[in-house]
Write a protein that binds this DNA or RNA. Structure first.
Lengths: 251, 251
DNA sequence: CGTGATTTTGAATGTCGTCAAAATAGGTGG
DNA sequence: CCACCTATTTTGACGACATTCAAAATCACG
């Protein structure tokens, strides 16, 4: 008698480990890229590194008081919301470099969970705000972040409004192919860090349909399923073509 | 050999009239509400009032250099983008009080057209920016605007990802029912200011499906079609129930 | 009152959600 | 390392829902 979590299957318990920011030296974070040396130092002083060992761990939940914002170092986070009919919609997938958890009127309006093992930077919102007061450049940065999120959301609207499931799937794959963390260009192997449920909830469809969609792409020779979450991309151009077709193939 | 405008039907030529802001005294604009007297005076100095006599007039187009931002006094504006397959997606419907046209890297990333006769306030982006430099409150205001648009976009994602056409239609109607400008509560009459094409492109479906969807709602006794664009709302609660049902009625 | 746009209706069929159940993968304790 | 339990993924069947093309009906406006 837990949460219904309709489309999502059961998930393991969270397991986290935290340490100070300075001890970690990771790759690229979008936040860092936009900050000066001085600002980065300030930022590190107030950031904590969180390591989530499992997918399915809750970072924060819809309706909670918002005390922190997060930035991703590694892994994938799904930002989602429950619809009234009890189904989950993943609003955005956060990849390394992304920022999420901006409060809205003091509370989180969405939930965030790890979709796979992930490493995050956590920053107290209060401290970030006072830091921004001293560093106007940071404030402008925030505006750019929100504007970026808006553009991404509009892109999702295009996808959900115009494409059928196979096309949405193609778009998703292409989004991940761009990220070297998930796509091995040498072998043309894509390591999908998401369950069928996560993909389904992101694309507004069901896990079964995702499976069948992948089967369809494989039948067309565009991809090959190595295992459930590993795909060989056999025809990248074909994937791109797919996106621009009509929603339905008639006659 | 004009633009293809696939889902949208032909539309009339634009017809505009401009006058200075001070000559008009209209109802509520979201911008005004958030500004002090002093700020409003400054704002009026740089605003121009535009009156569009027809629906289908282009306000600005995707890719153009962005020189102005707009606020709606009356009417409806559709903010849309063309997908590669040549279909139009309406990203947002702007109603009285809304602000739109924020540039993205100096250009408009979306198009904006009137969906029906409309009155707009136009403000030069340059001047608004320098005004914001002098009035930090205005700057914060801008952040709030973008944040608001993001929340709205996320709401659209929920709708497009979770609801079937009839449910989306119900959501659309409920959105308009909230606005006194379109809903006569006395007679329970809703004056839809949109063509079937506009509704279809907004909900990510086809005009035919919209017609059939309305037919379905009428058959259920939830609404009654007075004429193509006038609906009598017979069961508001029923409309709301509709939204939370499962996407598909099986067995 | 004619002309073009909008809306409606029909028919055919592709696509997808849902339920059910089998097959596979992953992890735990012996 | 295997047995076992559970979660994930796949497959099948069925019918609801939606897209598309076509054409008729209605509306709007000059």
């Amino acid at each position: 008698m837990d949460a219904p979590a309709p489309t999502a299957g059961k998930r393991q318990l969270p397991e986290i480990r935290a340490r100070s920011f300075d001890q970690s030296r990771d790759s690229h974070s979008l936040i860092e890229n936009l900050l000066t040396e001085k600002q980065q130092q300030d930022f590190r002083k107030i950031a904590t590194v969180l390591e989530y060992r499992r997918g399915g761990s809750t970072i924060f939940a819809e309706g909670e008081d918002a005390h922190f914002v997060y930035s991703i170092a590694a892994g994938v986070v799904r930002v989602s919301r429950m619809s009234q009919n009890g189904r989950r919609q993943v609003l955005a997938l956060m990849l390394p470099g992304d920022l999420f958890g901006l409060p809205d009127g003091g509370i989180y309006v969405n939930s965030a969970e790890t979709a796979c093992p992930a490493t995050l930077y956590r920053v107290p919102w209060q401290k970030l705000q006072s830091l921004m007061l001293r560093e106007p450049a940071l404030q402008l940065n925030l505006l750019n972040r929100v504007a970026y999120d808006l553009r991404e959301a509009q892109r999702r609207i295009m996808v959900l409004g115009q494409q059928n499931t196979r096309q949405r799937l193609a778009t998703l794959l292409l989004d991940f192919i761009v990220h070297p963390a998930f796509f091995d260009e040498e072998q043309s192997l894509l390591a999908l860090p998401l369950s069928r449920f996560d993909v389904a909830d992101y694309l507004g469809t069901s896990a079964e349909t995702i499976t069948r969609g992948l089967g369809h792409l494989e039948a067309q020779g565009v991809i090959r399923r190595v295992d459930a979450r590993t795909l060989e991309i056999r025809n990248l151009e074909g994937l791109r073509m797919l996106q621009n077709q009509k929603r339905r193939k008639d006659r």
